[in-house]
């Protein structure tokens, strides 16, 4: 039943037309779709299609990523209030930009996508020190730390992922917490995530949502 709406929704998202995407959602609701259907059978499959398109060399652009996440976030927030039962969270992540880095766009895209996938996301903001990443992950019982960096030195420096890794080792937390990184330096060098000792990276914010969801399923829940 939702197939035609998925296509129309995707067209609107790919066209960065937020208003039209929201109209499609409303039409689907009017046609009898449940709020759960909207999230799990419309918004999430649309993101899956975007990831598939990207992997097949479709020239998706930053604005499309931004709008995909923005709309997913808005629709999910609105639908969650109407769910018949609270959804089961897949897990929790803390996320921020590396120390010295003020670029927040990538983080916002990832967080928008994660919401639709029922991942709880704690936003630590920009310019986050390594100890704060780790302290907050422990305090929030998060299984993944997401570190965004847009500059070479904030990606590679000791106050970025390397610093977080060192603290996880020192505190014996590596079995419980994974690190994912993303941002321009990683696109220019796909092996860089290994250099900075991250567990994973993603080329774009939408794919990051899927990678993080995968990491969360690998880890045991906090006691």
């Amino acid at each position: 039943m939702l197939d035609s709406y998925i296509a129309a929704y995707n067209d609107a998202v790919f066209d960065t037309d937020r208003d039209e995407a929201l109209r499609v959602v409303q039409r689907a609701l009017d046609d009898g779709a449940s709020p759960e259907d909207i999230v799990f059978r419309l918004v999430v499959p649309a993101m899956d299609q975007m990831i598939k398109a990207i992997s097949e060399d479709f020239d998706a652009n930053l604005a499309q990523h931004f709008m995909t996440a923005q709309i997913a976030n808005e629709v999910t927030e609105s639908m969650l209030r109407r769910f018949t039962a609270p959804p089961q969270a897949l897990g929790r992540i803390v996320m921020g930009t590396a120390r010295g880095d003020m670029h927040s766009l990538g983080k916002r895209i990832v967080m928008g996508c994660l919401k639709a996938q029922m991942v709880e996301c704690v936003d630590l903001g920009v310019n986050v020190a390594p100890d704060r990443f780790v302290d907050e992950a422990v305090a929030q019982r998060a299984s993944v730390i997401g570190i965004s960096a847009m500059m070479s030195h904030t990606a590679r420096g000791p106050d970025g992922c390397l610093g977080v890794r060192r603290l996880l080792q020192e505190r014996g937390l590596e079995h419980r917490i994974r690190i994912i990184v993303g941002g321009a330096p990683y696109r220019f060098d796909p092996d860089l995530y290994r250099v900075v000792q991250a567990d994973a990276w993603a080329e774009d914010g939408i794919t990051a949502g899927k990678v993080i969801a995968g990491l969360l399923t690998e880890l045991p829940p906090w006691p």
């Binding site: 010295g100 880095d101 003020m102 670029h103 310019n127 500059m151 070479s152 030195h153 904030t154 420096g157």
Partner: peptide, 12 residues
Amino acid sequence: ICFADDGPPNVE
């Protein structure tokens, strides 16, 4: 402006 020792300054 946010200065670092090892990379370009950026707007804070």
